Simulated scan of single mutants.
Amino acid sequence: MVRLTRAQQQERTRATVLAAAKAEFTERGYIEAKVDRIAERADLTRGAVYSNFPSKRALYLAVLVDVVEHGDDRIAPSSPPSMAGALGGFARAWLHRLPLTADDPLAHQVRLPALAGVFDDEPARGALAQASRLEALLLALALESRPSADGMTARQVRRAELVLRLLNGPALDFGDPFDVADACEHLGGLRLADSWAPPHLPYVEPARSCREPWTPPAELPDLISGRPVGFAEDGVVAVLGTSRLAAAEELVRAARPGDRVVVAVVTGDPAETGRLVQLRISDFTHCLRRAFAPDAWPRLHLVLDDRALVAAAVGVPDADDATESAVRIRGGELVARADGRGAAHAAATADVPNTTPREATT
């Protein structure tokens, strides 16, 4: 008889709870589901369920994340040649993941309108709003990766916001999904004035120069590519709380050519707020990967730092939803750091002398 380690037993128990919870939520929906029935389905005690998930809401999110991350994740063979084609392909990938019948009640719960009735407190609303801005940035970066021969502005965030508003709006409840996809495709030809000039950036305090050894944390899954991402390479690592996700654009726009850009998302409530953001971004990036080839994916790595390992390595001991800290890494050292609003921009634009450790000590 093979004896399981404590970690293996915990993982088995967690998987059993998730399977039982998926069955309960599928049959009864979130409101009518009961933790006692989930425990009974799993042949476990109520305490065993709560030892793995602190609340029914956290368990619900964990089930949804599991559904999304184990779904169909085909990668586009090549990116569409036109802006309209790219947006039409993304819209069809988005709509394809939605059920056309009610055979699978749980599948409907992945959509934001269903989540809004469950996660309607202020932290959740704020996290969802910030996740929406991050999604618009990711779609815009994929669009911007294409060569522009039509005279359109380089920044595509406003166009991405319009597309996502259409895909998340009431049109899907009252209109034909195929008409919605066509409308998204037509937005590819719309001329929009779109510039990048946040008024606060000129007043951001410059990053502080430093020479500190960098001990990179263990790899974490990249929410964009689905592959493991490490932290040893030269570039900028920003630790952003779930109420500061919009600052990712400040980092991307300011990063230098060749920089490896990583955003680590942190929160004071990993089980609920963290999983909510993970669900939204994972669901979104699955569609992005089905519509755009890897060479068009955003030049950005995005990880959920739910155990605050990246935050600790950067030097943020008490990371929460409002955290914004960033460091520049070069040659295995931290050479600049910044904290507070604009930190990601400050670290990305840090003017650090290019000296070797030996030169610095002579």
Rank of each mutant, 00 (worst) to 15 (best):
R158F: 03
L112A: 13
R155S: 01
A84E: 09
S82K: 08
E161V: 12
D120N: 13
R46W: 04
P80F: 09
P123L: 01
R146F: 05
A154L: 09
H96F: 14
G126R: 10
L138V: 06
V65H: 12
D66H: 12
D36Y: 11
N52Q: 14
A93F: 07
H108I: 03
L44T: 05
L44D: 02
S55R: 09
E135F: 09
D36N: 12
V110Q: 08
R133S: 09
H108V: 03
A160E: 11
S145Q: 14
A58G: 15
H70W: 04
Q156L: 01
V35Q: 11
S51F: 00
P99F: 01
P99Y: 02
T153Y: 00
S145V: 10
P113N: 09
V35H: 04
E40K: 14
G71K: 10
L64Y: 08
A84C: 04
P123C: 00
V163W: 10
A48P: 00
N52W: 00
R155H: 06
S51L: 01
L138S: 05
D150T: 13
L112M: 12
L61V: 13
A48I: 01
L64M: 13
P99W: 00
D150E: 12
F90Q: 01
L64C: 11
A84F: 00
V67L: 15
T101P: 11
I75C: 14
G89W: 03
A114V: 04
D120C: 08
G126D: 05
L137T: 07
A114L: 10
T45V: 03
I75N: 09
A102G: 11
K56W: 09
E40I: 04
D103N: 03
A114Q: 13
V67Y: 12
R57E: 15
Y60A: 15
E40T: 13
R155G: 00
L162D: 08
D103C: 02
Q156Y: 00
A102K: 05
F90E: 04
E144L: 08
M152I: 00
S78W: 14
R92A: 02
R155V: 07
Q109N: 02
G47T: 05
A62T: 09
S145N: 15
A114I: 05
A129C: 03
D103F: 04
I75Y: 11
R92L: 11
R159E: 07
K56L: 10
F53M: 06
R46A: 02
A116F: 06
R74A: 15
A48C: 00
V49T: 01
A102N: 14
L59M: 15
R125L: 13
P113K: 11
R92K: 08
V163G: 05
T101Q: 12
A39P: 10
G126C: 03
L95V: 15
F90C: 08
A131L: 11
G151L: 08
L139F: 07
E40D: 14
P105C: 08
P147L: 13
R37V: 14
D150P: 02
L87D: 01
L143D: 14
A91Y: 01
S79Q: 11
A86C: 10
L112K: 04
A102E: 06
P54D: 12
